[in-house]
Every structure is written in C-alpha cells, then in structure tokens.
Simulated assay, not measured.
Amino acid sequence: MPALTRRCYATEQQKPEQPAPNPDEVAKKSTLLGQAPTRRPSVFTPTSAAVFILTLGGLVWYFRSEKERHVEMRKQQDKATYGRPKIGGPFSLLNQDNQPFTEKDLVGKWSFVYFGFTNCPDICPAELDKMTDVMNVAEKENGEVFQPVFISVDPARDTTKQMKLYLQDFHKRFIGLVGSYDETRAVCKKYRVYFSTPPNADPKDDYLVDHSIFVYLMDPNGQFVEAFGQISTAEEIIVKLREYMAEFKEKGHL
C-alpha cells in the first residue's frame, strides 16, 4: 500500500508579538478621535509637597542649630583651655619717693602699667601722654579708682630722683618704679617685656633702649586684663575699659 501522507493543519495562526503602546502616541490618537487623553498620575500632590516643605524646613533648622551649638561649644572649650595670658606676678621695686612698691600695691585699683625709660626721645612721652588722657576721662566717669604705673627698663640711669622729676610733666598720680638690673629683668619677665639694656651699662653713656611698647591693664584683683599696643588710641582704650569694668562688676567683684 502506498504510504500515507500525513497532513499537518495549523490550528491557529501565531500572531507576531506587538510592542507596548507608546503613551504619547495613545494620547495623540485619543485627541484625534475626540477622546480625552489619559493623564499620567502625578507623584507631586499637595500633600507630598507639604511634607517635602516641612521636611526641608526641619533639616535646615536642625543643621543650623547644630552649627550654632558646635560654634558655642568650641568657644567655651577655647576659653576653658586658653583663657587669658599669664602676665604679671610678684615683684619688688622702689617708687619715685623711694618707697617699696610690690604687686600687692596693684590690688584695689585698675592699673595701667607701662615699661619705658626717662631718656626716651619720643615713644615713651607719647605713650605716657596717652595714659594721661585715658586717666582724665576714666576718673571723670568713675572717680579715683585708677593708677598709672611707669616702670623703668633703664636701671643704670633711672634713679628715684630722676623718675620723680620726669613724671612731673604727666598725670599727677603717676607712680614711677625703678630697681636694680636683676629686679628690672625679673619684673620684665613677669610681664613678658623685652628690653635691650645691658647689665653693665654705663650711666654716663648716651644710648637708647629698645623695649616692648604696651600698656598693660590690670584689674583691682591685680590680674591681667589686656595689653594695648602703640597703635591703640586713647579713645579705643577708654571704650574697652568701660566694657571690662562692666564685666567685672557683673561678676560681683565690685
């Protein structure tokens, strides 16, 4: 018998796979057909917008407050670590009346302490004039609670007699202090003052003394407050003095 030929019939024609419709094309066709285009759902609703704004505001407030807290903490740490420089301390000299004067005589008044020498041609007289101007204003406002102190860094030539004569041109309550070379060097070391007078200087020689130019403000407890340089004006010193006196009073010292 002849072999049977098996016929295969396709039960269903397989359709080719169609790509996903493009939303933009669908919207375009819907518009052409007069149908309302399908809108995409928005993720930025009024509720989510409010949540976003509140969250952003909270983050800004948090980081700002944290920054301020860290800045204040750093200030407190620096103040506790460093504080004010350790300037001043025990010393013993003679005033222009040949009477002993020590660091204990600074207690009870606001003191302006300056280091110089009577043979100084210009800088020292200018600084003592500035101290006189400060004293005149300060005493007018607060009474006689201040004392200006002039410490010589020229022990070879500055005697008590020379100091008394020299200070007559400045504030009437200036206190002039002198001492031996070792005593002068010791007090300068306490106040971190540099001076160039050699220990074997001849008082008959004509020489100049190089030295630090600062006016040291000491509070009524005899503690260092601030050093004013040559560029500080009398007006600037008076402003700072008022601030320090107010702070001193707020702490209950006066």
Rank of each mutant, 00 (worst) to 15 (best):
V134N: 01
L56C: 13
Y181Q: 08
A138E: 07
V215L: 08
N95E: 07
L32Y: 09
T197N: 14
V51G: 00
A201K: 12
P2D: 08
G179Q: 11
V60W: 08
M135K: 01
T11I: 11
M73N: 04
Y216A: 04
V137R: 09
V178N: 09
M218D: 01
A36F: 07
T45K: 07
Y114F: 15
K251N: 13
E17Y: 05
V107S: 03
G57Y: 06
E17V: 14
T81E: 09
K130N: 02
T102M: 09
Q96S: 08
Q14R: 12
R7P: 02
A156H: 12
Y194Q: 06
R84S: 12
D133W: 02
V239C: 00
F101D: 02
P155K: 13
P46M: 08
E127V: 01
I123T: 15
T81G: 03
S30G: 10
G34F: 05
A246F: 02
D205S: 14
F91S: 01
G229A: 02
T118L: 05
G179N: 11
P85Y: 04
K204F: 01
Y9N: 04
L254P: 15
P16H: 03
K161W: 00
W110M: 06
G83Q: 05
Y191W: 15
R40G: 10
L54Q: 07
D169Y: 11
Q77C: 02
E226H: 15
E139G: 01
G222A: 10
K86M: 06
E226I: 09
G89Y: 04
V145R: 11
Q14L: 13
V145L: 11
Q223V: 08
Q77Y: 00
P198Q: 11
Y114D: 06
Y194K: 04
P23I: 13
V43R: 11
I238C: 07
A27S: 14
R64H: 08
P46F: 08
G88K: 06
T102S: 15
V51K: 15
I237A: 07
G89P: 04
E250N: 12
A10P: 01
Y114S: 10
L32C: 00
E72Q: 14
D206S: 12
T132F: 04
K130I: 02
D205W: 02
R157D: 11
K190C: 06
Y82D: 01
D219C: 05
Q223W: 08
Q168P: 00
T184M: 06
G229W: 03
Y114G: 09
P37K: 11
D122Q: 03
D78I: 12
Y82E: 03
